[in-house]
Deep mutational scan, measured.
Amino acid sequence: MDPFVVLVLCLSCLLLLSIWRQSSGRGKLPPGPTPLPVIGNILQIDIKDVSKSLTNLSKIYGPVFTLYFGLERMVVLHGYEVVKEALIDLGEEFSGRGHFPLAERANRGFGIVFSNGKRWKEIRRFSLMTLRNFGMGKRSIEDRVQEEARCLVEELRKTKASPCDPTFILGCAPCNVICSIIFQKRFDYKDQQFLNLMEKLNENIRIVSTPWIQICNNFPTIIDYFPGTHNKLLKNLAFMESDILEKVKEHQESMDINNPRDFIDCFLIKMEKEKQNQQSEFTIENLVITAADLLGAGTETTSTTLRYALLLLLKHPEVTAKVQEEIERVIGRNRSPCMQDRGHMPYTDAVVHEVQRYIDLIPTSLPHAVTCDVKFRNYLIPKGTTILTSLTSVLHDNKEFPNPEMFDPRHFLDEGGNFKKSNYFMPFSAGKRICVGEGLARMELFLFLTFILQNFNLKSLIDPKDLDTTPVVNGFASVPPFYQLCFIPV
């Protein structure tokens, strides 16, 4: 058959498939802009700032609406009420993970971030239990974070109060905490193996944040037939998995079943207990991918939040002064901060919360999916439909947070200066898919920041009023603009 005829037939089939998918069930789905064949609503979305586009569309179609990214149908949730109703009140029905062709290629359905069903539930339950087990290797997770915080302070001392970009050092600290939990080992910041790991993690975040990856996920045929950065992403992930597998083999040879040292040991012990169960989800494949998931999810998000926190503290020296006064009063100079201190430091706690609220790190979270046909607000959402959640619409709700575009710790303080919780605080998402490392991340943010401010004054290279804190939105995360500062020993 003539190649031209084959091409026309293929394009015609794709067009018909697109029209059929977009028209099927439209009477039951939430409203939304009319999609174009094949490309859907992509032309109506700013790929570099999806969150802003969703906010604009919500003003037209309401808090629940339908979009098509290519052939992929998505239902968008915008605003606290619908997000709570879906992710919390109907948590089980909305607990699936959205379709990610690239991740599915890399992870093969294993791990904790992109798995679904029984596998996801069992691996998540085990990971939560293990991360909360403060007795691994007779050292609590808090001990590990405190140790890394001391190392971080010593690295900052080496800058000798000269101007520096904190990106690298602030990236090393949370990565080392995860390494300590998974591998029972922290690395020197100049260790070549550690630097290679950091390089792969950072490069992957840069790649994932590009519009090209959005295109690959919406048109998965590209993955096999086109060159691009997605190939580098898959190569980096394969490198990390190979490295983790080597460490798993080392653990198998040296493990003491009665004295687990780290996450890998705990997983291997669980595998041993379930070795007679042919349906067990505790396999080497799941261990390797879960460890890679924890490394990827637990490094860049925390380091970016820390980097943004220091920029905001530079911009608002009056806030920094209040935090340091609270540190001096509650902790002093002669001991290290600990998590028990947080309950006695409402202002510092409010500042950490406000940093996370203000920066809105992951504006749309990772997409969910419905696990069955769901009736939601008089609409029928078919099983498997991807759910896109606007966390921006919750964290920047102007009824809950007056002047949401302003950095103001009073958003989390009552009139008496006591810490005030808010149900709208969802930087880790909400419901059954809430970030498994939430507790660890909150511990790291509090301890790293208090250790830094206990030991250093922060000095800006320019007038604080002239510092730009506008986030650089890159399609996946909101990151701070480049800046330098000086760490002046107190």
Rank of each mutant, 00 (worst) to 15 (best):
P3V: 14
V5T: 14
V6S: 11
L7K: 04
S24C: 15
T34R: 15
L43Q: 07
D46R: 07
F65C: 04
T66F: 03
G70N: 04
E72Y: 09
G79Q: 02
E85W: 05
G91A: 13
E104C: 10
F114P: 03
S115L: 02
N116Y: 05
R119H: 08
E122Q: 12
L131I: 12
R132Q: 15
R139F: 15
E142Q: 09
R150G: 09
E154T: 10
E155Y: 13
L156E: 00
K160F: 09
C164S: 09
V177P: 01
I178N: 06
I178A: 07
Q184N: 15
K185Q: 13
D191H: 06
Q193G: 13
Q193I: 11
E203F: 05
I205W: 14
V208P: 07
F219M: 11
I223S: 11
H230E: 04
K232N: 07
Q252G: 07
I264W: 00
F267Q: 01
L268C: 06
M271K: 08
K273P: 05
K273S: 14
S280R: 07
S280N: 11
F282K: 02
I284L: 14
T290R: 01
A292D: 04
T304D: 10
T304I: 15
R307E: 04
P317D: 08
T320V: 11
V323E: 01
G332L: 03
Q340E: 15
Q340W: 08
R342M: 12
G343Y: 14
V351T: 11
V352W: 03
Y358L: 09
Y358N: 05
I362S: 07
P363C: 02
C372M: 13
K375R: 13
F376H: 01
R377A: 06
K383G: 07
S390K: 02
V394F: 02
H396I: 03
K399S: 14
L413K: 00
E415Q: 12
N418C: 12
G431Y: 04
C435H: 02
V436R: 00
G437Y: 03
G439N: 09
L458R: 03
L461S: 15
D466E: 14
N474P: 08
A477H: 15
S478A: 00
I488F: 10
V490M: 11
